[in-house]
Design a protein around this nucleic acid. Structure first.
Lengths: 225, 225
DNA sequence: CGCACCGATATTGTCGACAATTTTGTCTCT
DNA sequence: AGAGACAAAATTGTCGACAATATCGGTGCG
């Protein structure tokens, strides 16, 4: 069966989603070549559509293309993942600060609700649920901050580092480290304290960066030779 | 004659540059429709190439596309320009901080040289030269900071707001305002003071945002009705 | 035995044509 | 005359085929 089907119009857009999912979920491993003809057959679409989709994914940073040499799944090194997180650090800091300025009473309740759910998930050992709440929190903060541009930037960066992100979420003990950081962000935003919110967001991402390095060292002990 | 010619291979890449230039230099005004067939004739390229180029420019944020309704030049509103500058503020801050950590003695000399040239350009009233030095400074700082990801983000954002940026550079009195800010960034980086460098970069961009608002109000007095 | 040259194969880049969709203009009916 | 429906034009989305380019394997020469 072909991985993803879609409604009639705009086949390319669904192809982009299908290929993106295949990359994110690991069906296509890093550095794997993506031959247009093969994808065309696999997803039963024309080569032009595949080509357009590859173009799009290249600009999202998930695929690398070299002139006349084709496309392959981009492998994000640890150093690159750190760089990405550093940019995320400052941009999420901006969003948190803006959110602190603009948040409404209703949204405060919502954010605190998320915080409560996160506490519960961690104490229950619900790693998957916590990960989803994590994403929800970050998304809501961006929405509250009303930063369209920042949101676009962050979406792109998140997609690029999703593999590292996932590995991190599965690391034992990680949730109990990040929970208080998340709660600090929520508190600062709910108190309309922009500076504190930015600091908290940065502290959190700094911790993520440190954890990234740690997890990588643990899983790549010396050098797989 | 066709606007841009190019070497044999990879016609699309040169088309992207040609259309981008046309947008940036104002040959294509904001909200102007970009019909594939017309561009195809104008640049004497196939429609497929034009299509690929428009895809690329869409992902750069210079063109907006709606499904089955074609592409048009994106009009960046003042609010959007401010948002873009806010993101730039924090990311350039990051780059400045990293540059302060990593700068070498040789690069310090180079940066100070740029500072000297800027002073000269301002005192000579050389607006264009100052603008170029400005760009050169920002670029060098990013390179010294060795932030690939941040550089990509900033390149994209700069391209989107180039029109506002240009109008700002032409504003009388603007250079003498921004010069000391630039010099402060240079000083902080050259003293390896990451925190001060980030603060200086932010202060500068904050000033740019304020100027953006001011210039816009001056040129759109009430509301063209 | 190694290296450079050359041809065969695989893959991408480009093109023109056709199908699907949206927009525009016109005509009728109330 | 105005609103709605229908047809025609314009434009985009998709497809298959051809040309250009890179990669791989074999052959001859030093």
């Amino acid at each position: 069966m072909t991985t993803g089907d879609a409604r009639r119009g705009e086949e390319t857009v669904s192809l982009v989603a299908a290929i993106r999912d295949s990359i994110v979920r690991g069906d296509f491993v890093p550095n794997q070549r993506l031959v247009e003809a093969d994808l065309s057959a696999q997803f039963s679409a024309s080569r032009a559509s595949v080509r357009a989709a590859l173009l799009e994914l290249t600009n999202e940073g998930l695929v690398e293309r070299v002139q006349n040499r084709g496309a392959r799944v981009r492998a994000v090194s640890l150093d690159e993942a750190v760089e990405i997180c550093e940019v995320r650090m400052v941009v999420e800091g901006l969003c948190a600060a803006k959110a602190a300025e603009r948040i409404t009473a209703k949204e405060i309740k919502e954010l605190k609700e998320i915080g409560k759910s996160m506490r519960k998930a961690v104490s229950n050992g619900d790693v998957l649920g916590y990960s989803q709440l994590n994403q929800q929190l970050h998304r809501r903060v961006r929405e509250i901050g009303e930063q369209q541009t920042a949101t676009q930037v962050l979406d792109r960066l998140r997609a690029q580092s999703v593999r590292h992100q996932f590995r991190l979420a599965m690391h034992p003990g990680r949730p109990s480290t990040s929970l208080p950081e998340h709660l600090a962000i929520i508190d600062a935003i709910c108190q309309h304290d922009a500076e504190a919110a930015e600091r908290a967001a940065r502290t959190h991402l700094r911790s993520v960066i440190a954890a990234l390095r740690e997890v990588d060292q643990a899983s790549t002990p010396v050098l797989a030779r």
